[in-house]
Amino acid sequence: MANTGFASFPNIYEQQRRNKFRTAMVIALFMLFLGFLGVGFDLFFLGNDPFGFTGAPSGYPLATLVAIGVGGASAAWGLGSGAKAVLASAHAYPVPQNDPRFRVLNNVVDEMVIAAGIPRPAVYIVPDSDPNAFAAGRDPSHSAIAVTEGLLESLSRDELQGVIAHELSHVKNYDIRLSTIVAALVGAAFLLSDWGLRGMRFGVLSGGGRGRSRSRNSPGGTLGIALMILWLLTLILTPILGRLLAMAVSRQREYLADASGAELTRNPLGLASALTKLQNAGAPTVSIKKGSAHLCIVDPLGKKMNFREGAVAELFGTHPQLEKRITVLKAMAYSRDSAGATA
């Protein structure tokens, strides 16, 4: 049987379940993290101690509530209109109906939608000459995929099919929900750490009334100071920590989308050869903003990120190195062909 090579693929329903669980975990983790930022600001700078860390509870957890509120609001906003925002920021326009230039694209999307057994996502074009593609949305019924004009120009039908299958796998696996939430929460963390640092500067400059209450409530002893330093460090490092998390989440999803995309087309070489072309294009996709980098099929920052070697590149890239992905796909095609030959 020709599809023997795909028998070992991870079960799609298992993937969906795991991804929904991961999304919940990421939200919970981020809320804890944002809460930590908020509690610290309350305690060390506003002098509010409603939880009684330093004795009798006093004041209201103003910063904590703001932090959790901003986090929750951006997660909700991300689910509701994250896809629209990403598409708008990339200046994407919907594929015109019955335009002969997009006939192949429309047909290929229809084909892959049938193979994946999901509702047809909205299809958008990004006016950019660098080949790239991304998927966004909340679930398969509320999803969109976008490809750049450069992608349509440079790929053959089979290669385009591989890329569309990869993107539809992101939709089907609920990767889009996970990445949209992560993007929104990382944004919230950026914002809060910025507010926190500004607020501190302002507090230090104005001195006065707030300072007095601060000294009254500051937790005493070395433990208190250590906690305060840890909190300060977290506040300063938040943007980096957030980006690391977004990258870790996305890197892992890319291999899986490659594999399940190949399962849809039953033609891993189509995607492999598309990735080779994307690799050789190498120029940055300028239309796609940094915040949505982890949604794309190849890093929009271009060669700089996709080619850096070694552990550091692995840690800081939103995507695994293209070389590795291409090798995995080729191995898949090989094992499939040999399985077909012996069956």
Binding site: R103, N107, E111, G117
Partner: peptide, 24 residues
């Protein structure tokens, strides 16, 4: 050319619909 693309697309759709049907 247009008819050929439509037919190629339809051929593929038949194939993928069959693949989906057989899997399920």
């Amino acid at each position: 050319k247009q008819l050929q693309e439509e037919l190629t697309g339809t051929e593929n759709k038949v194939g993928f619909a069959r693949q989906f049907y057989n899997d399920i």
